[in-house]
Design a protein around this nucleic acid. Structure first.
Lengths: 263, 263
DNA sequence: GGGTATTTGTCCGTATGTATT
DNA sequence: AAATACATACGGACAAATACC
Protein backbone atom coordinates (compact mmCIF):
# COMPACT_ATOMS: atom_id res chain seq x y z
CA UNK A 1 0.00 0.00 0.00
CA UNK A 2 2.70 2.45 -0.93
CA UNK A 3 0.56 4.74 -3.04
CA UNK A 4 -0.79 7.59 -0.93
CA UNK A 5 -4.44 7.59 -0.02
CA UNK A 6 -5.20 10.83 -1.81
CA UNK A 7 -3.90 9.33 -5.03
CA UNK A 8 -6.03 6.25 -4.61
CA UNK A 9 -9.08 8.42 -4.07
CA UNK A 10 -8.19 10.49 -7.10
CA UNK A 11 -7.69 7.36 -9.17
CA UNK A 12 -11.05 6.02 -8.08
CA UNK A 13 -12.82 9.22 -8.99
CA UNK A 14 -10.93 9.44 -12.27
CA UNK A 15 -12.10 5.95 -13.18
CA UNK A 16 -15.68 6.95 -12.46
CA UNK A 17 -15.32 9.96 -14.71
CA UNK A 18 -13.63 8.17 -17.57
CA UNK A 19 -16.06 5.28 -17.43
CA UNK A 20 -18.89 7.74 -17.86
CA UNK A 21 -20.32 6.96 -14.45
CA UNK A 22 -19.86 10.63 -13.69
CA UNK A 23 -20.88 12.69 -16.67
CA UNK A 24 -19.42 16.00 -17.85
CA UNK A 25 -21.02 18.92 -16.07
CA UNK A 26 -22.41 16.72 -13.35
CA UNK A 27 -21.94 17.66 -9.74
CA UNK A 28 -19.81 15.31 -7.69
CA UNK A 29 -20.42 14.34 -4.11
CA UNK A 30 -19.43 16.99 -1.61
CA UNK A 31 -16.16 16.87 0.25
CA UNK A 32 -17.97 15.79 3.39
CA UNK A 33 -19.71 12.93 1.63
CA UNK A 34 -16.45 11.81 0.05
CA UNK A 35 -14.72 12.02 3.42
CA UNK A 36 -17.27 9.61 4.89
CA UNK A 37 -17.26 7.39 1.82
CA UNK A 38 -13.50 6.93 1.79
CA UNK A 39 -13.06 7.11 5.55
CA UNK A 40 -10.46 9.83 5.12
CA UNK A 41 -10.15 13.36 6.39
CA UNK A 42 -11.62 16.24 4.49
CA UNK A 43 -8.16 17.60 3.73
CA UNK A 44 -7.10 14.32 2.19
CA UNK A 45 -10.18 14.32 -0.01
CA UNK A 46 -9.35 17.89 -0.96
CA UNK A 47 -5.84 16.80 -1.98
CA UNK A 48 -7.38 14.21 -4.27
CA UNK A 49 -9.71 16.78 -5.80
CA UNK A 50 -6.84 19.20 -6.19
CA UNK A 51 -4.96 16.60 -8.18
CA UNK A 52 -7.92 16.06 -10.48
CA UNK A 53 -8.22 19.81 -10.86
CA UNK A 54 -4.65 20.25 -12.09
CA UNK A 55 -5.20 17.51 -14.63
CA UNK A 56 -8.28 19.36 -15.77
CA UNK A 57 -10.83 16.66 -15.01
CA UNK A 58 -12.89 18.48 -12.41
CA UNK A 59 -13.51 22.04 -11.34
CA UNK A 60 -14.58 23.44 -8.00
CA UNK A 61 -17.00 26.30 -7.48
CA UNK A 62 -17.11 27.90 -4.05
CA UNK A 63 -20.51 27.64 -2.45
CA UNK A 64 -21.74 25.22 -5.08
CA UNK A 65 -19.62 22.12 -5.23
CA UNK A 66 -17.25 20.14 -7.40
CA UNK A 67 -18.14 19.39 -10.99
CA UNK A 68 -16.84 17.23 -13.79
CA UNK A 69 -15.53 19.59 -16.45
CA UNK A 70 -17.29 19.85 -19.76
CA UNK A 71 -15.17 19.49 -22.84
CA UNK A 72 -14.64 22.88 -24.37
CA UNK A 73 -15.36 23.09 -28.07
CA UNK A 74 -11.93 23.99 -29.33
CA UNK A 75 -11.09 26.73 -31.75
CA UNK A 76 -9.02 25.47 -34.65
CA UNK A 77 -6.63 27.86 -36.32
CA UNK A 78 -4.73 27.20 -39.53
CA UNK A 79 -1.19 28.50 -39.24
CA UNK A 80 -0.25 28.45 -42.91
CA UNK A 81 -3.20 29.73 -44.88
CA UNK A 82 -2.44 29.64 -48.55
CA UNK A 83 -2.35 33.31 -49.53
CA UNK A 84 0.76 33.64 -47.46
CA UNK A 85 1.32 37.28 -47.52
CA UNK A 86 -2.19 38.59 -47.70
CA UNK A 87 -3.81 38.21 -44.30
CA UNK A 88 -1.15 40.24 -42.65
CA UNK A 89 0.95 38.88 -39.89
CA UNK A 90 -2.16 38.41 -37.90
CA UNK A 91 -3.21 34.94 -37.03
CA UNK A 92 -6.73 34.51 -38.27
CA UNK A 93 -9.25 32.06 -36.99
CA UNK A 94 -10.80 29.09 -38.76
CA UNK A 95 -13.40 28.30 -36.18
CA UNK A 96 -16.29 25.86 -36.48
CA UNK A 97 -18.70 28.30 -38.09
CA UNK A 98 -16.54 30.20 -40.52
CA UNK A 99 -19.26 32.65 -41.53
CA UNK A 100 -20.15 33.87 -38.10
CA UNK A 101 -16.68 34.04 -36.66
CA UNK A 102 -17.43 37.38 -35.06
CA UNK A 103 -13.84 38.13 -34.34
CA UNK A 104 -13.64 41.43 -32.53
CA UNK A 105 -10.38 43.26 -31.98
CA UNK A 106 -9.85 46.07 -29.55
CA UNK A 107 -8.24 49.26 -30.77
CA UNK A 108 -4.50 48.75 -30.83
CA UNK A 109 -2.55 50.01 -27.88
CA UNK A 110 0.56 51.58 -29.37
CA UNK A 111 3.82 52.03 -27.53
CA UNK A 112 7.41 52.85 -28.31
CA UNK A 113 9.61 50.36 -26.52
CA UNK A 114 13.16 49.20 -26.35
CA UNK A 115 13.56 45.79 -27.92
CA UNK A 116 13.74 42.98 -25.38
CA UNK A 117 16.03 40.02 -25.93
CA UNK A 118 13.28 38.04 -27.54
CA UNK A 119 12.15 40.83 -29.84
CA UNK A 120 15.69 41.78 -30.78
CA UNK A 121 16.59 38.20 -31.65
CA UNK A 122 13.60 37.66 -33.89
CA UNK A 123 13.86 41.05 -35.60
CA UNK A 124 17.62 40.66 -35.93
CA UNK A 125 18.35 44.03 -34.38
CA UNK A 126 20.37 45.12 -31.39
CA UNK A 127 18.86 44.74 -27.96
CA UNK A 128 17.49 48.04 -26.74
CA UNK A 129 16.78 49.42 -30.20
CA UNK A 130 13.51 51.32 -30.30
CA UNK A 131 10.57 49.45 -31.75
CA UNK A 132 6.90 50.17 -32.25
CA UNK A 133 4.66 47.84 -30.28
CA UNK A 134 1.02 47.45 -31.26
CA UNK A 135 -1.03 45.42 -28.80
CA UNK A 136 -4.53 44.06 -29.41
CA UNK A 137 -6.98 41.79 -27.64
CA UNK A 138 -9.34 39.62 -29.66
CA UNK A 139 -12.56 37.92 -28.80
CA UNK A 140 -14.53 35.32 -30.74
CA UNK A 141 -18.24 35.41 -30.08
CA UNK A 142 -17.61 37.38 -26.96
CA UNK A 143 -15.16 34.94 -25.39
CA UNK A 144 -11.55 36.04 -25.08
CA UNK A 145 -9.51 34.36 -27.76
CA UNK A 146 -6.09 35.89 -28.12
CA UNK A 147 -3.74 38.63 -27.02
CA UNK A 148 -1.32 39.72 -29.67
CA UNK A 149 1.46 42.23 -29.96
CA UNK A 150 3.23 43.24 -33.15
CA UNK A 151 6.68 44.78 -33.16
CA UNK A 152 8.09 46.90 -35.98
CA UNK A 153 11.47 48.59 -36.22
CA UNK A 154 11.15 52.29 -35.39
CA UNK A 155 12.92 52.94 -38.68
CA UNK A 156 9.74 52.24 -40.55
CA UNK A 157 8.04 55.22 -38.95
CA UNK A 158 10.90 57.59 -39.75
CA UNK A 159 10.86 56.40 -43.33
CA UNK A 160 7.21 57.29 -43.74
CA UNK A 161 5.02 54.56 -42.29
CA UNK A 162 3.56 56.92 -39.74
CA UNK A 163 0.31 55.03 -39.36
CA UNK A 164 2.22 52.49 -37.34
CA UNK A 165 2.20 54.80 -34.36
CA UNK A 166 -1.47 55.69 -34.62
CA UNK A 167 -3.79 53.89 -32.26
CA UNK A 168 -6.11 52.78 -35.00
CA UNK A 169 -6.59 49.64 -36.99
CA UNK A 170 -4.68 49.82 -40.21
CA UNK A 171 -7.27 49.23 -42.89
CA UNK A 172 -6.30 46.85 -45.67
CA UNK A 173 -3.81 45.40 -43.26
CA UNK A 174 -0.33 46.29 -42.18
CA UNK A 175 1.24 44.13 -44.88
CA UNK A 176 -0.47 46.08 -47.62
CA UNK A 177 0.32 49.36 -45.90
CA UNK A 178 4.04 48.66 -45.63
CA UNK A 179 4.15 47.48 -49.23
CA UNK A 180 2.47 50.70 -50.38
CA UNK A 181 4.46 53.18 -48.34
CA UNK A 182 7.88 51.56 -47.98
CA UNK A 183 7.91 49.06 -50.85
CA UNK A 184 8.40 46.36 -48.24
CA UNK A 185 6.98 43.16 -49.65
CA UNK A 186 6.35 40.34 -47.24
CA UNK A 187 7.35 37.06 -48.86
CA UNK A 188 7.03 34.63 -45.99
CA UNK A 189 7.01 34.09 -42.28
CA UNK A 190 8.14 31.70 -39.62
CA UNK A 191 6.00 30.63 -36.68
CA UNK A 192 7.64 29.66 -33.45
CA UNK A 193 5.32 27.69 -31.16
CA UNK A 194 5.82 27.10 -27.47
CA UNK A 195 3.74 26.59 -24.34
CA UNK A 196 4.30 28.37 -21.07
CA UNK A 197 2.44 29.40 -17.93
CA UNK A 198 0.24 32.48 -18.29
CA UNK A 199 1.19 35.73 -16.61
CA UNK A 200 -1.19 37.74 -14.45
CA UNK A 201 -2.55 39.79 -17.34
CA UNK A 202 -3.28 36.74 -19.43
CA UNK A 203 -4.84 34.86 -16.54
CA UNK A 204 -7.22 37.71 -15.94
CA UNK A 205 -8.06 38.41 -19.58
CA UNK A 206 -8.75 34.80 -20.49
CA UNK A 207 -10.42 33.99 -17.21
CA UNK A 208 -8.01 31.18 -16.52
CA UNK A 209 -7.81 29.47 -13.14
CA UNK A 210 -5.60 31.46 -10.82
CA UNK A 211 -3.27 28.59 -10.06
CA UNK A 212 -1.85 28.69 -13.55
CA UNK A 213 -2.44 25.05 -14.37
CA UNK A 214 -3.76 25.97 -17.82
CA UNK A 215 -0.90 26.97 -20.07
CA UNK A 216 -0.89 29.26 -23.05
CA UNK A 217 0.43 28.85 -26.55
CA UNK A 218 2.88 31.59 -27.44
CA UNK A 219 3.24 31.85 -31.20
CA UNK A 220 5.92 34.19 -32.46
CA UNK A 221 5.41 34.96 -36.12
CA UNK A 222 8.38 36.61 -37.79
CA UNK A 223 7.61 38.06 -41.21
CA UNK A 224 10.34 38.50 -43.82
CA UNK A 225 10.62 40.83 -46.79
CA UNK A 226 12.09 39.91 -50.13
CA UNK A 227 15.70 40.57 -49.22
CA UNK A 228 15.46 38.16 -46.34
CA UNK A 229 15.24 40.71 -43.55
CA UNK A 230 12.70 40.36 -40.78
CA UNK A 231 10.15 43.15 -41.03
CA UNK A 232 7.79 42.34 -38.23
CA UNK A 233 7.36 40.17 -35.17
CA UNK A 234 3.88 39.28 -33.98
CA UNK A 235 3.54 37.45 -30.70
CA UNK A 236 0.14 35.87 -30.12
CA UNK A 237 -1.02 34.17 -26.96
CA UNK A 238 -3.84 31.58 -26.79
CA UNK A 239 -5.04 29.44 -23.88
CA UNK A 240 -4.22 25.77 -24.49
CA UNK A 241 -7.54 24.59 -23.12
CA UNK A 242 -9.61 25.90 -25.99
CA UNK A 243 -7.30 26.21 -28.94
CA UNK A 244 -5.81 23.89 -31.52
CA UNK A 245 -3.69 24.57 -34.56
CA UNK A 246 -3.38 23.04 -37.98
CA UNK A 247 -0.47 23.04 -40.40
CA UNK A 248 -1.00 21.97 -44.00
CA UNK A 249 1.89 20.69 -46.08
CA UNK A 250 1.77 19.72 -49.74
CA UNK A 251 -1.36 18.99 -51.72
CA UNK A 252 -4.37 18.27 -49.59
CA UNK A 253 -7.93 17.39 -50.62
CA UNK A 254 -9.96 20.15 -49.02
CA UNK A 255 -9.24 21.96 -45.85
CA UNK A 256 -12.78 21.61 -44.58
CA UNK A 257 -13.25 18.12 -43.28
CA UNK A 258 -11.39 18.48 -40.05
CA UNK A 259 -13.71 18.02 -37.16
CA UNK A 260 -11.74 17.32 -34.05
CA UNK A 261 -13.22 14.63 -31.87
CA UNK A 262 -11.28 13.03 -29.08
CA UNK A 263 -12.17 11.30 -25.88
CA UNK B 1 -6.11 42.49 2.78
CA UNK B 2 -8.43 40.26 0.88
CA UNK B 3 -5.81 38.24 -0.94
CA UNK B 4 -5.02 35.05 0.95
CA UNK B 5 -1.77 34.82 2.80
CA UNK B 6 -0.41 31.90 0.78
CA UNK B 7 -0.83 33.93 -2.39
CA UNK B 8 1.01 36.88 -0.90
CA UNK B 9 3.86 34.62 0.10
CA UNK B 10 3.91 33.07 -3.36
CA UNK B 11 3.90 36.52 -4.93
CA UNK B 12 6.78 37.61 -2.75
CA UNK B 13 8.84 34.57 -3.63
CA UNK B 14 7.95 34.92 -7.29
CA UNK B 15 9.19 38.50 -7.26
CA UNK B 16 12.48 37.35 -5.74
CA UNK B 17 12.86 34.76 -8.47
CA UNK B 18 11.98 37.03 -11.34
CA UNK B 19 14.18 39.82 -10.06
CA UNK B 20 17.09 37.41 -10.07
CA UNK B 21 17.50 37.61 -6.34
CA UNK B 22 16.97 33.88 -6.35
CA UNK B 23 18.86 32.32 -9.22
CA UNK B 24 17.90 29.28 -11.27
CA UNK B 25 19.03 26.09 -9.61
CA UNK B 26 19.52 27.80 -6.30
CA UNK B 27 18.11 26.26 -3.17
CA UNK B 28 15.42 28.25 -1.45
CA UNK B 29 14.96 28.59 2.26
CA UNK B 30 13.37 25.58 3.92
CA UNK B 31 9.70 25.44 4.76
CA UNK B 32 10.50 25.93 8.43
CA UNK B 33 12.59 29.02 7.74
CA UNK B 34 9.87 30.43 5.51
CA UNK B 35 7.27 29.69 8.15
CA UNK B 36 9.22 31.77 10.68
CA UNK B 37 10.01 34.47 8.15
CA UNK B 38 6.40 35.02 7.13
CA UNK B 39 4.92 34.22 10.54
CA UNK B 40 2.63 31.68 8.97
CA UNK B 41 2.08 27.99 9.47
CA UNK B 42 4.10 25.44 7.61
CA UNK B 43 1.00 24.30 5.72
CA UNK B 44 0.38 27.80 4.48
CA UNK B 45 3.95 28.10 3.26
CA UNK B 46 3.52 24.76 1.54
CA UNK B 47 0.42 26.07 -0.22
CA UNK B 48 2.46 28.96 -1.54
CA UNK B 49 5.21 26.64 -2.74
CA UNK B 50 2.65 24.35 -4.33
CA UNK B 51 1.33 27.28 -6.30
CA UNK B 52 4.80 28.12 -7.55
CA UNK B 53 5.42 24.53 -8.59
CA UNK B 54 2.27 24.37 -10.70
CA UNK B 55 3.44 27.49 -12.48
CA UNK B 56 6.76 25.79 -13.02
CA UNK B 57 8.88 28.28 -11.11
CA UNK B 58 10.20 26.03 -8.37
CA UNK B 59 10.63 22.33 -7.77
CA UNK B 60 10.74 20.37 -4.53
CA UNK B 61 13.01 17.45 -3.82
CA UNK B 62 12.28 15.31 -0.75
CA UNK B 63 15.13 15.23 1.68
CA UNK B 64 16.92 18.05 -0.10
CA UNK B 65 14.83 21.17 -0.30
CA UNK B 66 13.04 23.51 -2.67
CA UNK B 67 14.87 24.81 -5.71
CA UNK B 68 14.33 27.42 -8.38
CA UNK B 69 13.91 25.55 -11.65
CA UNK B 70 16.52 25.82 -14.33
CA UNK B 71 15.38 26.72 -17.78
CA UNK B 72 15.42 23.61 -19.93
CA UNK B 73 17.14 24.03 -23.26
CA UNK B 74 14.24 23.39 -25.57
CA UNK B 75 14.20 21.08 -28.55
CA UNK B 76 13.01 22.85 -31.67
CA UNK B 77 11.25 20.81 -34.31
CA UNK B 78 10.32 22.03 -37.78
CA UNK B 79 6.87 20.80 -38.71
CA UNK B 80 7.02 21.48 -42.44
CA UNK B 81 10.43 20.47 -43.69
CA UNK B 82 10.74 21.20 -47.37
CA UNK B 83 10.99 17.74 -48.93
CA UNK B 84 7.44 17.16 -47.90
CA UNK B 85 7.03 13.56 -48.66
CA UNK B 86 10.48 12.23 -48.08
CA UNK B 87 11.12 11.95 -44.36
CA UNK B 88 8.12 9.76 -43.89
CA UNK B 89 5.27 10.68 -41.67
CA UNK B 90 7.65 10.75 -38.80
CA UNK B 91 8.33 14.01 -37.11
CA UNK B 92 12.04 14.55 -37.22
CA UNK B 93 14.04 16.72 -34.94
CA UNK B 94 15.89 19.90 -35.74
CA UNK B 95 17.65 20.26 -32.45
CA UNK B 96 20.41 22.67 -31.59
CA UNK B 97 23.26 20.47 -32.82
CA UNK B 98 21.89 18.99 -35.99
CA UNK B 99 24.80 16.65 -36.59
CA UNK B 100 24.79 14.94 -33.27
CA UNK B 101 21.07 14.58 -32.91
CA UNK B 102 21.46 11.02 -31.69
CA UNK B 103 17.83 10.21 -32.14
CA UNK B 104 17.23 6.67 -31.02
CA UNK B 105 13.99 4.85 -31.72
CA UNK B 106 12.89 1.69 -30.02
CA UNK B 107 11.77 -1.22 -32.15
CA UNK B 108 8.17 -0.60 -33.16
CA UNK B 109 5.51 -2.30 -31.13
CA UNK B 110 3.00 -3.53 -33.68
CA UNK B 111 -0.64 -4.21 -32.92
CA UNK B 112 -3.84 -4.80 -34.82
CA UNK B 113 -6.51 -2.58 -33.32
CA UNK B 114 -10.00 -1.40 -33.96
CA UNK B 115 -10.04 2.23 -35.00
CA UNK B 116 -10.99 4.59 -32.18
CA UNK B 117 -13.11 7.64 -32.85
CA UNK B 118 -10.08 9.80 -33.30
CA UNK B 119 -8.26 7.42 -35.60
CA UNK B 120 -11.39 6.71 -37.64
CA UNK B 121 -12.09 10.40 -38.13
CA UNK B 122 -8.61 11.23 -39.33
CA UNK B 123 -8.28 8.17 -41.58
CA UNK B 124 -11.80 8.71 -42.88
CA UNK B 125 -12.87 5.13 -42.17
CA UNK B 126 -15.63 3.62 -40.06
CA UNK B 127 -15.15 3.39 -36.34
CA UNK B 128 -14.08 -0.11 -35.37
CA UNK B 129 -12.39 -0.90 -38.66
CA UNK B 130 -9.17 -2.82 -38.14
CA UNK B 131 -5.99 -0.82 -38.38
CA UNK B 132 -2.31 -1.53 -37.95
CA UNK B 133 -0.77 0.39 -35.08
CA UNK B 134 2.99 0.86 -34.91
CA UNK B 135 4.20 2.41 -31.68
CA UNK B 136 7.68 3.79 -31.05
CA UNK B 137 9.48 5.66 -28.32
CA UNK B 138 12.26 8.08 -29.21
CA UNK B 139 15.07 9.54 -27.21
CA UNK B 140 17.42 12.37 -28.07
CA UNK B 141 20.80 12.08 -26.43
CA UNK B 142 19.36 9.67 -23.96
CA UNK B 143 16.54 11.86 -22.76
CA UNK B 144 13.00 10.81 -23.66
CA UNK B 145 11.75 12.95 -26.50
CA UNK B 146 8.60 11.58 -28.06
CA UNK B 147 6.12 8.76 -28.12
CA UNK B 148 4.57 8.17 -31.49
CA UNK B 149 2.06 5.79 -32.96
CA UNK B 150 1.29 5.37 -36.65
CA UNK B 151 -1.98 3.92 -37.87
CA UNK B 152 -2.48 2.34 -41.28
CA UNK B 153 -5.62 0.77 -42.73
CA UNK B 154 -5.44 -3.02 -42.46
CA UNK B 155 -6.22 -3.09 -46.19
CA UNK B 156 -2.64 -2.15 -46.93
CA UNK B 157 -1.39 -5.38 -45.43
CA UNK B 158 -3.84 -7.53 -47.39
CA UNK B 159 -2.82 -5.77 -50.58
CA UNK B 160 0.81 -6.66 -50.07
CA UNK B 161 2.43 -4.25 -47.64
CA UNK B 162 3.18 -7.01 -45.20
CA UNK B 163 6.13 -5.30 -43.60
CA UNK B 164 3.67 -3.07 -41.82
CA UNK B 165 2.92 -5.87 -39.38
CA UNK B 166 6.52 -6.76 -38.74
CA UNK B 167 8.04 -5.44 -35.55
CA UNK B 168 11.02 -3.94 -37.31
CA UNK B 169 11.95 -0.54 -38.54
CA UNK B 170 11.02 -0.13 -42.17
CA UNK B 171 14.24 0.85 -43.84
CA UNK B 172 14.07 3.65 -46.37
CA UNK B 173 10.94 4.76 -44.57
CA UNK B 174 7.32 3.78 -44.68
CA UNK B 175 6.53 6.37 -47.33
CA UNK B 176 8.99 4.86 -49.76
CA UNK B 177 7.83 1.36 -48.89
CA UNK B 178 4.18 2.08 -49.56
CA UNK B 179 5.06 3.84 -52.80
CA UNK B 180 7.06 0.82 -53.93
CA UNK B 181 4.66 -1.91 -52.97
CA UNK B 182 1.25 -0.31 -53.33
CA UNK B 183 1.94 2.63 -55.64
CA UNK B 184 0.66 4.87 -52.87
CA UNK B 185 2.33 8.23 -53.28
CA UNK B 186 2.19 10.60 -50.35
CA UNK B 187 1.58 14.11 -51.65
CA UNK B 188 1.04 16.04 -48.43
CA UNK B 189 0.00 15.96 -44.82
CA UNK B 190 -1.88 17.90 -42.22
CA UNK B 191 -0.70 18.43 -38.68
CA UNK B 192 -3.21 18.93 -35.93
CA UNK B 193 -1.69 20.40 -32.78
CA UNK B 194 -3.22 20.40 -29.34
CA UNK B 195 -2.13 20.35 -25.71
CA UNK B 196 -3.55 18.05 -23.07
CA UNK B 197 -2.63 16.48 -19.74
CA UNK B 198 -0.33 13.46 -19.96
CA UNK B 199 -1.65 10.01 -19.18
CA UNK B 200 0.09 7.60 -16.79
CA UNK B 201 2.26 6.04 -19.50
CA UNK B 202 3.47 9.38 -20.77
CA UNK B 203 4.10 10.72 -17.28
CA UNK B 204 6.31 7.75 -16.51
CA UNK B 205 8.15 7.63 -19.84
CA UNK B 206 8.97 11.33 -19.90
CA UNK B 207 9.62 11.53 -16.20
CA UNK B 208 7.04 14.27 -15.78
CA UNK B 209 5.86 15.42 -12.35
CA UNK B 210 3.15 13.12 -11.09
CA UNK B 211 0.63 15.88 -10.55
CA UNK B 212 0.24 16.39 -14.27
CA UNK B 213 0.98 20.10 -14.27
CA UNK B 214 3.21 19.73 -17.34
CA UNK B 215 1.12 19.16 -20.42
CA UNK B 216 2.02 17.40 -23.63
CA UNK B 217 1.75 18.40 -27.24
CA UNK B 218 -0.28 15.90 -29.22
CA UNK B 219 0.43 16.27 -32.91
CA UNK B 220 -1.73 14.23 -35.26
CA UNK B 221 -0.18 14.05 -38.70
CA UNK B 222 -2.53 12.78 -41.38
CA UNK B 223 -0.80 11.90 -44.63
CA UNK B 224 -2.66 11.93 -47.96
CA UNK B 225 -2.01 10.14 -51.23
CA UNK B 226 -2.52 11.62 -54.65
CA UNK B 227 -6.23 10.90 -54.89
CA UNK B 228 -6.87 12.80 -51.72
CA UNK B 229 -7.37 9.84 -49.42
CA UNK B 230 -5.71 9.66 -46.03
CA UNK B 231 -3.12 6.90 -46.01
CA UNK B 232 -1.66 7.18 -42.57
CA UNK B 233 -2.19 8.82 -39.20
CA UNK B 234 0.79 9.43 -36.94
CA UNK B 235 0.14 10.68 -33.44
CA UNK B 236 3.20 12.06 -31.69
CA UNK B 237 3.38 13.20 -28.09
CA UNK B 238 5.96 15.67 -26.73
CA UNK B 239 6.23 17.27 -23.27
CA UNK B 240 5.54 21.00 -23.48
CA UNK B 241 8.30 21.85 -21.05
CA UNK B 242 11.14 20.98 -23.40
CA UNK B 243 9.75 21.21 -26.89
CA UNK B 244 9.00 23.96 -29.37
CA UNK B 245 7.85 23.84 -32.95
CA UNK B 246 8.48 25.91 -36.02
CA UNK B 247 6.37 26.38 -39.13
CA UNK B 248 7.86 28.00 -42.20
CA UNK B 249 5.65 29.68 -44.77
CA UNK B 250 6.77 31.23 -48.03
CA UNK B 251 10.31 32.19 -48.91
CA UNK B 252 12.59 32.47 -45.93
CA UNK B 253 16.26 33.41 -45.79
CA UNK B 254 17.84 30.40 -44.13
CA UNK B 255 16.28 28.16 -41.59
CA UNK B 256 19.31 28.18 -39.37
CA UNK B 257 19.34 31.38 -37.43
CA UNK B 258 16.65 30.58 -34.94
CA UNK B 259 18.03 30.52 -31.50
CA UNK B 260 15.24 30.80 -28.99
CA UNK B 261 15.95 33.07 -26.10
CA UNK B 262 13.26 34.30 -23.77
CA UNK B 263 13.14 35.46 -20.20
C1' DG C 1 -33.44 42.60 1.04
C1' DG C 2 -32.34 39.45 4.83
C1' DG C 3 -31.32 35.22 6.88
C1' DT C 4 -29.90 30.61 6.86
C1' DA C 5 -28.04 26.36 5.29
C1' DT C 6 -24.68 24.37 2.27
C1' DT C 7 -20.22 24.01 0.17
C1' DT C 8 -15.67 25.15 -0.82
C1' DG C 9 -11.49 28.17 0.65
C1' DT C 10 -8.06 29.40 3.98
C1' DC C 11 -5.28 28.66 8.05
C1' DC C 12 -3.71 26.53 12.03
C1' DG C 13 -1.31 22.79 14.89
C1' DT C 14 0.28 18.22 15.17
C1' DA C 15 1.99 13.64 14.13
C1' DT C 16 4.20 10.41 11.30
C1' DG C 17 6.30 8.67 6.96
C1' DT C 18 9.91 8.81 3.42
C1' DA C 19 13.88 10.36 0.87
C1' DT C 20 18.40 12.27 1.02
C1' DT C 21 22.63 13.58 2.95
C1' DA D 1 22.81 5.77 12.45
C1' DA D 2 21.38 10.37 12.76
C1' DA D 3 19.88 14.70 11.09
C1' DT D 4 17.41 17.29 7.70
C1' DA D 5 13.64 18.40 4.64
C1' DC D 6 9.71 17.45 2.18
C1' DA D 7 5.21 14.31 1.88
C1' DT D 8 1.15 12.59 3.79
C1' DA D 9 -2.67 12.63 6.92
C1' DC D 10 -5.59 14.06 10.60
C1' DG D 11 -8.75 17.27 13.02
C1' DG D 12 -10.52 21.71 14.00
C1' DA D 13 -11.98 26.58 13.24
C1' DC D 14 -13.54 30.32 10.69
C1' DA D 15 -14.20 32.87 6.24
C1' DA D 16 -16.32 33.50 1.78
C1' DA D 17 -19.37 32.36 -1.95
C1' DT D 18 -23.63 30.64 -3.38
C1' DA D 19 -28.39 29.05 -3.27
C1' DC D 20 -32.81 29.03 -1.37
C1' DC D 21 -36.56 30.52 1.31
Amino acid sequence: MSTPMYRQIAEDLRAQIESGELKPGQQMRTEIELRDHYAASRNTVRDAIKLLTTVGLVETRPGQGTFVVKKINPSVTILNTDPLTSPGGDITNGIGDPEESEVVSTAPQVEIQQASDNVATHLNIARGTEVVSRHQARTVKGIPWSLQTSFYPMDFVFKGATKLIEAQDIRAGAVRYLADTLQLRQVGYRDHILVRAPDATETSFFGLPADGRVGVFEISRTAYEENGWPMRLTVSVFPTDRNQFVVNVGELPDTSGVDPRFA
